[in-house]
Amino acid sequence: MDTSIWRPILYLIGFMAFAGLNAAYLGWCERKGAGRIQRRTGPMEVGFQGLLQPLADGLKLMSKQLLVPTGVDGILFRVAPILAMIPALTSFAVIPFAGNIQARSVELSVLLLFALASIAMMAILLGGWASGNKYAVISAARSVSQNLAYEIPMLVTVITVVMITGSMNLQDIAVHQQGGFWHWNIFALNKSILMPISFIIFFICSIAETNRAPFDMAEAESELVAGFMTEYGSMGFGLFMMGEYLNMVVGACLVTILFLGGWDCPFGLFPGVWWFLLKIYILLFTVIWVRWTFPRTQIYKLLNLSWKILIPFSLVNLLVTAAFIKIF
């Protein structure tokens, strides 16, 4: 790996651009996707097929004043949206898009990603708390309990993967799965027959972790108005939205690397970054698809799902995998 100072910087700029484009255009994709599912057209007016809509929205948000209501904690209120955005951006530094496209290969990159994901949750907590709004405070409380419940099955599932590959480096994990879809962790039935289920568990958890519907209790517009974002306008709101989409992208990248073989082609042909992008966009589309299909869960039902179904299943999977590794 090249250790010159320019390489990470160039890569970072590239990833920033990638992240920025994703944050803007995932919103467009979501609106178009929702429109098609609901048999509407979605945005059509600004540019061809509404392609310039994100730009227009961004301009509108930026031209607005960031209102800081009286009675809020000024510093936290301003910091929270930035805090929602930064960890997601930082995460891209360690994600390997292909064998040679990675800003920095960190040995404990899996751990780093989860640490950063927890900071994103802190942003919601702080934003909700600092707003001094009752809806926002309820939302913050919900968000914390939800994240606590979901990180356990998520981490247990990751431990399973780490046990199989024997590394906590995302690059190594992806390399370990090269050579066709039968090598992917999702189909690693020789390691543990429950791997497809742990893929589903991990995917559900990553949706819950990013506060996406049907697990968007923190936002819950019909109950909590807009949850932690109630008091935010202009780019404060914009950053939260971008942070949400970026977290989605990071989640999709993680799922791809941990379970779907990273940049590997299903049939062993032309592995490369395009396979990686294809996989994450399929996953992102699924997330959007899920959001526009289901009603919202209720917070306690969600905790039930986590504690009664996801955690037992992931623990069983962990034990089975450990047994398989020990025996074979």
Partner: peptide
């Protein structure tokens, strides 16, 4: 009602 429960798509089907 579905909108209250957070499901948006049924609203549009119903409106159709």
């Amino acid at each position: 009602f579905l909108l209250d429960l957070g499901g948006f798509t049924p609203l549009l089907y119903a409106f159709d």
